[in-house]
């Protein structure tokens, strides 16, 4: 299948990335060549194959549902581009 410009704009919307109109053509070309490459997989019949979901022969460990740290609000807020004393600040979302 081939990806057209509209499809790419839609995917970009889903990924929350604005796409520069001037770059859509080259992006379309690149992504189509990549998908052409990827679609070699269709040569294989995988009807009876179980998908591999974990490379480890162990299931994921679980831990007790306990608080192991805390009181690090300052550390967490430190790298925020915009904040007040207690919160991350974002552009207004509710009128």
């Amino acid at each position: 299948m081939s990806l057209d410009k509209e499809k790419i704009k839609h995917v970009a919307k889903l990924a929350r990335i604005s796409v520069d109109e001037a770059k859509v053509d080259s992006l379309t070309k690149d992504l189509n060549s990549i998908f052409k490459f990827i679609e070699q997989l269709n040569e294989l019949n995988t009807d009876k194959v179980e998908p591999l979901t974990s490379i480890l022969n162990q299931s994921l460990r679980s831990r007790k549902d306990e608080i192991s740290d805390g009181k690090i609000r300052e550390k967490i807020l430190k790298n925020s581009p915009k904040k007040n004393e207690e919160f991350f600040v974002v552009p207004k979302v509710v009128e």
Partner: peptide, 30 residues
């Protein structure tokens, strides 16, 4: 580019054709 590829192969309607297919081939490789 890679975020867009990833978003596309996981998006509704394409998951089985791409991501699930790749997980199956990954099994064959292993």
């Amino acid at each position: 580019r890679r975020i867009l590829i990833g978003t596309y192969v996981l998006s509704s309607g394409y998951y089985d054709a791409y991501y699930l297919k790749a997980q199956k081939v990954r099994q064959l490789i292993k």
